[in-house]
Amino acid sequence: MDMQLMQDIVNAYGPSGREQTASDVIRGYIAPYCDELYNDVLGNLIAVKKGTSGKKIMFSAHMDQIGLIVLDIDDKGFLYVAPVGGVSPLLSVAHEVMFQNKTRGVVSYENKHKKLTEISMMEVFIDIGAATREEAEEKVQIGDMAVFVSNFVYMGKRVAHRTQDDRIACAIVAEAMKTMKSDHDIYAVFTVQEEVGTRGAGPAAYVIEPDLNISLDVCSVGDTPESVREHVKLGCGPTVKAKDNSVIVPMSVRTFIKNAAKKHEINVQDEVLRAGGTDTGAIQRTRGGILSGCISIPCRYIHTPVETVDMDDVDAAVKLVLACAEEKELP
């Protein structure tokens, strides 16, 4: 993995529905490696690398991230917010946020009536250092979105960042595009609005009509102390999804991915995700049905400020994407 590429893609601003900055960063990295590159009507970034077989494989990763949207600005310049995607009020408080125009702020809450553990998003606000509504409105408008600021935490092979979900997968697809070899047309699709209900992927797949889609996302793990029981562990390879709340992956697709992994001696794990859905399902139900599967990057602490992945899994996922693309026979 090109670490600069990973850092730039993971750090880019891009809450659901406002992904343009993230899209531009990804575009910069993959432009030299594709024949066509465009944003569709919803903002999905679509990169095409032509093949000769007449078949189409789509690799999709969502580029949106969770965030906060400004609902109201009070007389003293505090910004009240609603969540964009699955944001925990508890995990928002005491964190730094950033708006598209780089305005910084910190998150806190109304502490008169409730303890921190009891709050809802209604009591959460952003302080951008403004003293009045007018001063705040010079920097931020109602309807603007903020994302959580995060630094990379390098812990040997393991790396934490608030936005591993799902920019690490965007970085994997972007990295794979550099050396992608395939007989088939390759569509690398960086989707929008996954975090608010897997909205972007379906329309992208509708237009592309792939013969096979493979989504890349993160999945939760069961290898931390006293965690919810999950089969997947960090550092044991990317996973081949069997099921999540949005999809049951057809056996033919799972076998296809596993066979490709075996040929290239890539370790993979089976994944049954307990909670949450992914673009995989939205794509499966497009048009008359599309063969759709998912490779996941095991990730600790999803939707918290310290989403942690193992770089061995990340590198293996890049290889697995390349291995799938090289397969001549599609499921």
Partner: peptide
Amino acid sequence: QGTSGSNDMGPVHIGLAG
């Protein structure tokens, strides 16, 4: 100034090609 509730634009904006 609220984000709850939905309307016909939900299915419309992601219908077909969007």
